[in-house]
Amino acid sequence: MSEAVVSPSVLRMRRISLWALPMALALGIVLQSHENAWEWWRSRELFAREVPASTAASLGGADWKLMGLRRVAERADGRAVMLLDMEAVVRDPEAFAVLPCRLVLEAPDGRRWSPQFLTPSEVNRLPERRGRTIPTCTQALASKPTAGVTLRVSEGFVLPAGMDRQVRPVLSLPAGRPHYLRFEIPG
């Protein structure tokens, strides 16, 4: 076979094509997966906002304020029952109503306790809660309040005794991610 003579312009075209290929591939990946990447970004808790004690912070269409976190009882098996009280002032009802709410207690080592599905009986027996039902976070979101409404939210937790002084409430809402709130305990 004889060597074919290739003109410089054809060579240039070939080189351009070769360089264009990785770019086309990258573009393809971006076009294919940008929705997934966006979904990932909006579902991850990436940036914590520290909320100083007795101040409110905005997240997911409402201003959230920690009203109190206290140990209600200690069970015989060494479990502490804790009650978390929050207050939410609704600013954007549409963003606020996006479920689910993730309100947990977080230890310094990263362990997290979710609220009990059924409020512990020790919490229900508290005098100030007799005959009253204070909504949990998910119930508050699902009640679809209008703008300007102030909601009381409370959750009951069960965790090992001894952790009660170390944990801090962490709030993450679908409309607020990738940002989330970590509240400082007063006192």
């Binding site: 479990r79 230890a107 362990r111 306790w113 069960v158 965790l159 090992p160 952790m163």
Partner: peptide
């Protein structure tokens, strides 16, 4: 009594 998988698990417990 004490069937595993019935109750949710908690860290440290």
């Amino acid at each position: 009594p004490r069937l595993l998988g019935t109750d949710r698990l908690e860290p440290g417990l």
